[in-house]
């Protein structure tokens, strides 16, 4: 087995926060006696990622997935445990040779200079990463063409649409051809056609260059389209590590099929219950085949068998005491 590109060994991260009491009296009290509390954002997480792998990190808001990315990229120091990326054992030191090998796109933290065209930021990145001019020109032309933003290269960033800005953020993260690409919410707020464009591009990139991709998203479509493996983080702890299908089969409840037909059924077969006029629920545990005429089936899917359903169920569970 190849040496892992990323090894996270029993890593924890805690930070101190302050609670504020409400009202004037509370504010007066807080002025002299602030209430501190320690939050365990990541607790004893271990994980390895192989070269060329696409790993999806799933978790609710505040679950700790972005913190985990910040630990891997060296933005935050681990409170306990070890993070090792490539051959660097101390990402927090942020050595230039290490930073040269990773690309990070934090969708809510922009690399782009707001008042200047994206090209100016990209030229700055060319100098920062010491990219030869001809390679830069060639690679930039390829990236902008693939993501359909060539015409926007010279427009001030403040005049771009959200989708175009996100695509340029992605280009900024890729301009120095990193070995590991971290994507935090790469498709947030962008339309389905742009999403599909990004999925196709990232799949191709991973296939052609064997770039390792770590991806976090609330959009399960991102994970389904890209991730070969998923790790689910809940309340700072890793609760699942495996393939997307493995996650579904592990957490899906009893096999119940949801069927939508093009017209109401005159008689209900055994083990079939009506949800509304053309929507039925079939207890598949008791049957070998679907007891409905296939010519009239518009849609069939397993109840509680989608990533969305499973994650909703997982994320609503209470934090372990």
């Amino acid at each position: 087995m190849a040496t892992p590109t990323i090894t996270i060994d029993h890593v924890s991260f805690n930070y101190v926060t302050y609670t504020k009491q409400s009202g004037l009296r509370g504010s007066w009290h807080d002025l002299f006696h602030r209430q501190k509390s320690t939050v365990a954002a990541v607790q004893d997480v271990s994980l390895t990622v192989a070269p060329g792998e696409v790993l999806g990190l799933l978790g609710a808001n505040g679950a700790g997935k972005t913190t985990l990315i910040k630990l891997m990229t060296g933005i935050l120091p681990a409170s306990a445990g070890q993070v090792r990326l490539l051959d660097d054992q101390h990402p927090f030191q942020k050595k230039p040779a290490f930073l040269q090998r990773i690309g990070v796109m934090l969708s809510q933290k922009s690399q782009l200079a707001w008042d200047l065209p994206p090209l100016d930021t990209l030229v700055l990145l060319r100098e920062i990463y010491h990219i030869p001019h001809d390679r830069f020109d060639h690679w930039l032309a390829f990236l902008t063409e693939q993501l359909a933003v060539t015409e926007q290269l010279h427009e001030p960033v403040r005049k771009l649409s959200l989708g175009q800005r996100i695509k340029f953020e992605l280009i900024c993260a890729l301009i120095h051809t990193p070995e590991i690409l971290f994507l935090d919410e790469p498709t947030i707020g962008i339309d389905v056609s742009s999403q599909a464009n990004i999925y196709r591009f990232l799949q191709q990139l991973n296939h052609d260059t064997q770039m390792t991709i770590i991806l976090t998203s609330h959009n399960t479509k991102d994970i389904e389209a890209l991730a070969q493996r998923v790790a689910v983080i809940n309340h700072g702890q890793k609760i699942f590590d495996g393939t997307p299908n493995g996650l579904i089969s592990r957490y899906a409840s009893a096999a119940t099929l949801e069927v939508v037909t093009d017209e109401p059924l005159e008689t209900l077969p055994a083990h079939v219950t009506r949800v509304d006029e053309t929507h039925y629920r079939v207890d598949a545990t008791a049957l070998a085949t679907v007891p409905l005429d296939p010519a009239h089936i518009l849609q069939v899917h397993r109840h509680n068998g989608s990533l969305d359903d499973i994650l909703t169920q997982l994320f609503s569970e209470e934090a372990p005491k």
């Binding site: 910040k70 933005i75 040779a97 930073l99 990070v104 809510q108 933290k109 922009s110 920062i128």
Partner: peptide, 13 residues
């Protein structure tokens, strides 16, 4: 305050 310092820290600069 915005957390955008992260972007600066991730550049070899």
């Amino acid at each position: 305050r915005s957390g955008n310092l992260s972007v600066m820290l991730l550049r070899p600069i």
